[in-house]
Design a protein around this nucleic acid. Structure first.
Length: 468
RNA sequence: GCCGCGGUAGUAUAGCCCGGCCAAGUAUGCGGGCCUUUCGAGCCCGUGACCCGGGUUCAAAUCCCGGCCGCGGCACCA
């Protein structure tokens, strides 16, 4: 039994995909169950966003992850309250009504707020007051009794419940219904136990949390699950940080496209860029569960993606930076452009003498060229002189085979290329065959690279460059 | 500073628990060749690593100790 427990305050990125994919994979491998649980118990500093719950579900589905159970913590508040009362009755927690700074100091000294030693009845009464709204923010917290001499100060009597003024910070799902909110460590422990989670796979930033949570498990007489912690993923050249992305979007809303901007390392961003779910999965599985940090480059992801895409992506001729040349031939010629090298299917075009053909400017210097699917030509004084269609000659003389497009019978295309935080664009023309494809289809522009169709209408197609 | 985790080629990973078959496998990258109606894919060749120092042992990437480096945590965040 494994789980993925995101905070719905932002969409997930490649780094979050790691625990999700590994937990899912682990559960499937051992025929266990996989749970999706939204951890939204902080309406104040990590305010959940209503639409994000669904965006995350969409992302997980897109990644091919299926969950057996789904929970939302903010809808389980009564369970948390009940468990807290039980914990208090077991003498495992106390209400701290000291001043924040004061109790911090006392804990540091290994003492804790004097209310720690008040009788259980007093604690129950005080916790009821916390739930009912008697205390306001900062006036009271419920602390779990731990080792007051623990070397890690943060472990000492950690906070299980605090007051959040939901009239000021309403929760997107339950509004201002509750003011006493469980902290991550409390909610996660209760839910992991109640839901029967046996294996926790998560980042190493949670290591100390395991230490904290074990005190609670011990008080309650529960068995702590097996926890595996792995290092972080540095996705070179991509921004993954939630707060950073949020800042960028709000600062320059015109420059960025939102959660799915292909310059971001979000799952939606990668998807929009033409990365396949399968590639992300393979990458994460390959990286595995090592405790060290991992530096992943886009080249790495692209390599996996290319391998999968190559078999499927149809080929299209696209000419950027066009040079216009006039066709010189004795009669009309029929071009047969292969749709894909491994299938016997061609797009046919007729070109006539006098037509203007667009070639990639740098290709002109070759002098003699083979226009893919059409024939061999020599370039002279702005004209393309037809030499024949012999392929053996092309091979013998190593004549370059290049892409081309009839200038006046083509579709304007804009290619967006994410380069760090910039989005470069490349304009050019693609053969008419591109109109057969739909938004989200992935294509290979011959001798250019793989792209994903982002939008299209009758007279223009916009694509996003994935990789070479 | 204190607590914790980890260090295998440019990058990622296998091997480490249970020492020998590891003069270290795989993928990607990079260099070269073959093939191909793409500068893509495929095939072949090459490139390149056990953080350092001690110890244990017939034998250490693997076990022990010290150092160095990287990372995480030290919240009324998750």
């Amino acid at each position: 039994m494994t789980r993925f427990a995101p905070n719905p305050d932002f969409v997930i990125h490649l780094g979050n995909a790691r625990p999700a994919i590994l937990s899912h994979e682990y559960a499937r491998k051992y025929k266990g169950k996989f749970i999706l649980r939204f951890e939204d118990t902080d309406p104040r500093t990590k305010t959940p966003i209503k639409e994000v719950y669904n965006l995350i579900k969409e992302d997980l589905k897109w990644l091919g992850l299926r969950w057996d159970e789904e929970y939302i913590q903010s809808l389980r508040m009564n369970i948390f309250y009940e468990t807290a009362f039980e914990l208090i009755r077991r003498n495992g927690a106390y209400v701290d009504t000291c001043d924040i700074e004061e109790s911090k100091r006392l804990i540091k000294e290994g003492k804790g707020c004097p209310t720690r030693s008040n009788p259980v009845e007093w604690q129950v009464e005080q916790f009821e007051k916390m739930i009912e709204g008697y205390y306001s923010e900062g006036e009271a917290v419920l602390r779990v009794k731990t080792d007051l001499n623990h070397p890690d100060i943060s472990v000492r009597d950690w906070v299980a419940f605090r007051i959040i003024d939901t009239s000021k910070y309403p929760h997107p799902l339950v509004g201002d219904k509750y003011v006493a909110w469980p902290t991550y460590n409390f909610a996660v422990s209760v839910d992991d136990h109640l839901m029967g989670v046996t294996h926790i796979l998560r980042g190493k930033e949670h290591m100390q949390n395991a230490t904290k949570q074990m005190f609670l498990f011990k008080h309650m007489g529960w068995k702590y699950p097996t926890a595996i912690h792995f290092g972080r993923i540095h996705f070179e050249g991509f921004i993954m940080s939630k707060s950073k992305i949020r800042e960028l979007i709000s600062k320059e809303p015109d420059k960025y496209w939102g959660y799915d901007d292909p310059r971001f390392g979000t799952i939606r961003g990668l998807r929009r860029r033409g990365i396949l779910a399968e590639a992300i999965k393979q990458l994460i599985l390959e990286v595995g569960i090592k405790g060290t940090d991992t530096r992943i480059t886009y080249t790495n992801l692209a390599a996996i993606n290319r391998k999968i895409l190559d078999e499927k992506a149809h080929r299209i001729m696209f000419v950027s930076d066009p040079a216009r040349l006039t066709l010189e031939a004795p009669n009309k010629l029929e071009a047969k452009v292969p749709v894909h090298p491994s299938i016997e299917d061609y797009r046919r075009y007729i070109v006539s003498p006098g037509d203007t053909i667009c070639l990639n400017k740098p290709d002109i210097k070759h002098g003699t060229v083979r226009l893919l699917g059409l024939g061999n030509f020599v370039i002279k004084e702005g004209k393309l002189h037809y030499l024949g269609s012999s392929l053996t000659e092309v091979k013998e003389k190593k004549i370059p085979i290049i892409q081309w497009v009839p200038c006046n019978n083509s579709i304007p295309v804009t290619v967006y290329k994410p380069e760090g935080l910039e989005l470069e664009s490349d304009r050019g023309y693609a053969e008419l065959g591109i109109t057969n494809y739909r938004v989200d289809d992935k294509l290979q522009f011959i001798r250019y690279g793989f792209v994903r169709i982002d939008s299209k209408d009758n007279d223009e197609v916009k694509v996003i460059f994935a990789h070479e």
